[in-house]
Design a protein around this nucleic acid. Structure first.
Lengths: 355, 355
DNA sequence: CTGAAAGCGCTTACAG
DNA sequence: CTGAAAGCGCTTACAG
């Protein structure tokens, strides 16, 4: 047996036909002339080991580029060091930046992430959750496109921690969302700080909680400065088309009756609105300052002029969720509830300059 | 022991404090009064089993909502039924639709996917691949943002199948990419079919193979119809800004010297160009028909008018890669090489109508 | 048709 | 400091 191993060793890497099976801890132990228990200890730096032996074992492991089977490890530890991530954002706009944050938080722990990106529907959801469950993930993070829709509680797995990100969740769940109201407040305050007094708001459907919260933030910022809202919040779809059309309503009138700034509920609306103004011969920011929400780079940077907007800090959101997950997995007692992560104002040219 | 189980059973689902540990096959066996070997057979419908016993075991499993530990299964089968997916598209534009295709192909096989989305760099790449390797993934799919850049071969794992998608790869690798030349040919042919004769091409950097291939397709389509290219391909960045500026060059001249159509290397360039034309008072498609490439919905549908473009069929690409992966894992002998997946022309209003 | 036993690759008390 | 043994939750020859 040892002989065959020796023989195979010569070929490592030189060709991959008849690839020698990956070495196990037994291989290492034999080569290093120790028991597998000792090999295990040497490899994990656990228990008391002779420095001599430790080095020998490690050297062998190195040479054979041994990697302990995480499957076997998972079996004995009853912990797989994996997480499931459920999302219905098949597009990736939110999910990937968020995931990057989660990964970052978990990198040191060597946990890997199963991604399930499918439109939510009871059938697929059930299947996906069952799959994660069978794989014994240590935890599940549930993501959504809307903070006011979520996965039905009865479908969620039992017995492992669940963290919600940008999704609805039952009271007492661990949940992280962006700060819609605060972001809107910041954007509107910025417009006011730039000297604007007649600040309108154009946004997505009022059926979205996020749209309502952003409108709230807009109102609060105005109120704080003693400014009146410029008309009602103009709810519509989250599209460029909405911004484009609303612009005509708002600006196709005598100058004195027009707003001098518009806070838009997302970057796409802002983009449509700005394009519309350009076609009407109006200048941004001279005739109207415009701010958006999302900091979706392909829009915010391509808008003419580039768009001042709120960055929702998706990565930070993910990192926070990842760290919470870690705590939960490690059995730390931590109070559940919703944490909202503040966005940051990204200043570009669409608002002009503060005085 | 049996008694304690009975006791706990009453609480299942009613509360999750002191959650009873998930049942193992041993639990099932005890409850069903059979050996674990028999339980295993009943559950897997394998070997010869009395119909009677089979039903009894299954019923018990059902009641306890037993799920076999895939960790344990993986250990004995030496196959984890997991795949690694490596991508440097942190944005998700390509990755998620592609992933959806891979998942679809693998759904029946119950394989789950580890996603690693990080900017490629030797250090992180090495770490991520090592992680996948340690997890014993059955295969790895490597994705890229460019078909002419890839992961250095020496970093790739040995001994498991690797499939490349939209990425460079060594000769003899299993690789799936979109058909840039063919798509460009289709788009250009469509413009010609719409009666255009002076068809220009504006695209991304010539350092990108994709840009060169798209230019090739443009030229071939023109040649086939006996049309001369309208000037050289205008290479620049893949941005709206590029399209926006080039439009001035191309159209700020007497009508007789202008193109009557522009095939753009991507949707963003097309968007910039169309916006520019609008500001110049030119009509699309009357003054110039415009086609793009990518069918990135937020652009293609928001452009005024909506953009005719090439859809790269990312999901199909993913599905093809997933199916190939399955074949490779199952040891089917299949010839390696590059498969290119044709795109499809999506007609919208930016090209007018074919006669 | 069914059970006892070995084994997948590890870790970890338990003895020395 | 080191080794033999049991065990994590399964599957699968091997005997009956």
């Amino acid at each position: 047996m040892a002989d065959r191993d020796e023989e195979r060793d010569g070929r490592r890497g030189s060709r991959d036909t008849g690839a020698s099976p990956r070495p196990t801890i037994r291989t290492i132990a034999e080569r290093a002339q120790v028991s597998i228990a000792t090999a295990s200890r040497a490899l994990n730096d656990t228990g008391r080991i002779g420095e001599e032996t430790r080095k020998r074992v490690r050297k062998v492991a190195q040479e054979l580029s041994y990697r302990p089977s995480s499957t076997a490890r998972a079996l004995v530890h009853r912990r797989t060091f994996t997480l499931g991530l459920l999302t219905n954002d098949r597009y990736g706009r939110f999910t990937l930046p968020m995931l990057a944050g989660v990964s970052e938080a978990l990198a040191d722990e060597d946990v890997s992430i199963f991604l399930c990106a499918e439109e939510y529907g009871p059938d697929r959801l059930r299947a996906n959750i069952a799959a994660m469950d069978a794989r014994g993930v240590d935890g599940l993070v549930v993501t959504g496109k809307r903070i006011d829709k979520g996965v039905p509680a009865e479908l969620l797995p039992q017995g492992i921690p669940v963290v919600f990100v940008h999704s609805a969740a039952a009271l007492g769940a661990h949940r992280f969302i962006g700060d819609d109201e605060g972001g809107a407040h910041a954007a509107t305050s910025h417009l006011a700080a730039c000297g604007r007094r007649r600040i309108a708001h154009v946004s997505g459907p009022a059926t979205f909680l996020a749209a309502r919260l952003r409108a709230d933030g807009w109102r609060r910022a105005l109120e704080e400065r003693g400014l009146a809202p410029f008309g009602d919040a103009l709810h519509g779809t989250w599209t460029e088309a909405h911004g484009f059309e609303v612009a005509r309503h708002l600006f196709d009138r005598p100058r004195s009756e027009r707003p001098d700034a518009v806070f838009c509920g997302n970057d796409q609306i802002a983009r449509g609105l700005i394009d519309s103004l350009a076609l009407m011969g109006l200048d941004v920011p001279d005739d109207a300052a415009v701010a958006g929400f999302d900091n979706w780079d392909v829009f915010a940077e391509a808008t003419r002029p580039p768009l001042t907007t709120i960055d929702p800090q998706l990565k930070t959101l993910g990192r926070a969720a990842g760290m919470r997950m870690l705590d939960l997995i490690n059995g730390k007692r931590v109070d559940p509830g919703t944490v909202s992560i503040p966005g940051v104002l990204v200043k570009r040219r669409s608002c002009g300059l503060e005085p």
